[in-house]
Nucleic acid binder design. Structure first.
Lengths: 166, 166
DNA sequence: ACAACTTAGTTGTAGATACAACTATTCCGG
DNA sequence: CCGGAATAGTTGTATCTACAACTAAGTTGT
């Protein structure tokens, strides 16, 4: 609680206001498209997509939580809803009786397959295609830098490297 | 609904995954700090801060909605809560009887004053200070490009220019 | 001058997330 | 090998947001 605050200068404020506006608007756009075309929230989709790329289309709840950036409580509610809809199934992990595995069902896999193109198109339309190739590279580096602060425990670091630009 | 989807290449995916992670994590961090230190959500704070910079600390609901990127319905609920807490007051616009003005009270102004330094410090800690000066400039340009797509009606364009980096 | 339309805002409700409290295992030091 | 701590996950509740329906006031064309 220092007396002299380092306020943002003009350049910094410009960047921050824009990032904040994106934070406010982009999730709504992604949600709206997926809700309309696939009856999924963006987070639902992300959970399903993450499972679809895992070994056996199965992950432990904790691992799924780390990869998607969600708390276990949130994930538990979401997976429960997805299970009710038959997109995912849960079963106790044999190796650790505390743990629960979540597996993508065939119906769930079909849902991901069907909704992926529309989602990719939306991401292109509103983000990637708005940028030059150089800006895409810059954004990647900027994202890395910010995430090192946000995700200081490095719980998700493995994920970024997996999608490393090289 | 074309048959051949243009998937994201390696570089694009790297940038997108990072942006998505920020979208997922940053709002929670901002909310948590303001909730803890000022009993405000980030959006509450943004509403109060926007009013604090307006003429007479007063704005019409519609104008406030545009500047903050919120729908009128959301804003109405939020302002109602802020009014209950005595931070904002509403009164009918004399010029247009359909309209409502929202004005920051003295208590609300004091709340903004008191919470601004902590918020600025958080923004610095997790975003601005993580970046080089060059990256701040790049982020500003990238944000501009994305917002031109997201905010195609340009309802908020005025705001960005106000915070233009020159 | 009046019917149809648009604009401004509120309110009710359902769905999603955060937070805290809780149960059930597993791990670990002495 | 046992008691305390840590880990894994679930569940209840309060809060916040989105969506749709609604009221009220202004605008416009004829």
């Amino acid at each position: 609680m220092s007396v002299d605050t380092r306020w943002l200068d003009r350049e910094e404020l410009a960047a921050w206001v824009r990032l904040m506006a994106i934070l406010e608007l982009l999730p709504g756009v992604l949600d709206a498209q997926l809700r309309r075309d696939a009856q999924l929230t963006h987070f639902d989709y992300y959970v399903l997509a993450t499972l679809s790329e895992a070994q056996e289309r199965t992950l432990r709840m904790t691992a799924l939580g780390h990869q998607t950036g969600a708390t276990l409580a949130r994930l538990s509610h979401v997976v429960q809803r997805l299970e009710t809809r038959g997109l995912v199934e849960r079963f106790p992990c044999p190796a650790d009786k505390r743990a629960t595995n979540a597996r993508l069902t065939d119906v769930g896999w079909e849902k991901v397959r069907a909704s992926a193109p529309g989602h990719a198109a939306t991401v292109r339309e509103y983000v990637i295609d708005a940028l030059t190739q150089e800006q895409v590279t810059q954004l990647s580096a900027i994202g890395d830098a910010i995430l090192r602060r946000l995700d200081s425990e490095g719980t998700r670091a493995a994920l970024y490297q997996r999608y490393d630009a090289r």
